[in-house]
Design a protein around this nucleic acid. Sequence first.
DNA 1: CTATTGATGTTCT
DNA 2: GAACATCAATAGA
Length: 195
Amino acid sequence: MNAPISRRETQRRQAELFSFHSVAAAPALIGWTLTVDGVGGRIVETEAYDHEDPASHSFSGPTPRNAVMFGEAGHVYVYRSYGIHWCMNLVCAGHASAVLIRALEPTEGLDVMIARRGLDEPRALCSGPGRLCQALGVTREHNGMRIDQPPFALEPGPAAEVIVGPRIGITRAAEVPWRFGERGSRYLSKPFPRV
DNA sequence: CTATTGATGTTCT
DNA sequence: GAACATCAATAGA
C-alpha cells in the first residue's frame, strides 16, 4: 500500500513545509509522523502562532525564552507551561512564527509512552500538548534542536481532511481560527466546535 | 457530557 | 505580584 518514503523525499517535503508561514504549515502538518527516539505517532492537532499575534510568546519581541522562535525554521521551541508541563513547537518561515504540536495519534513505542504517562489508555497518551511531551520525553533539553536530526524524526503521511477552529487555552486573540485538526480523529485534545 | 479548581515554575509588569 | 499556548481530579446535570 504505502511505499516507504525515501530520505530524499522526506527532505524535499520538509524543505517545502518549513518555507511556509506557521498559518500554512500548521494545517499541512496534520497527518505527518513525529517521533523522538522512535517514540511518537501521527500529528492530528496543531495551532499556529506568529509575531503579529497577541497570543504568541514572540509578540513582544525576542527574550531568552523565545529566542528559538526568532531563529531558523525547522528547529524545535520547547517551553514550560503552567510550571508543570512542557510544550513543543516547530519554528516556521516568516517572522518568529511557530506551530504548537497539540495532539498525536500514538503509533510507535506505545509501551514506552504508557510507562512515562502511567496510563494504558491510548486515547489519553498524547491528546494534549503537555501530555504528548511527557509521552515522548520532550523537555527543556530539546529546545533549539533541529527537527530533521536525531533524536527527532518527522515524516510526511497521506493527506488528511483538516478542520479549523479557534485556539485553546488563550485569553488574547482567542477568536482567531488558527487551530487545526484531523476531522473525526479520536485523539484530539478537545472536540472542534460545530462539526 | 460540562464546569470548576488546585498544583506548579518561569516570565513579565 | 500577576499571568500563564495545561492537566487531573472532582462534582454535578
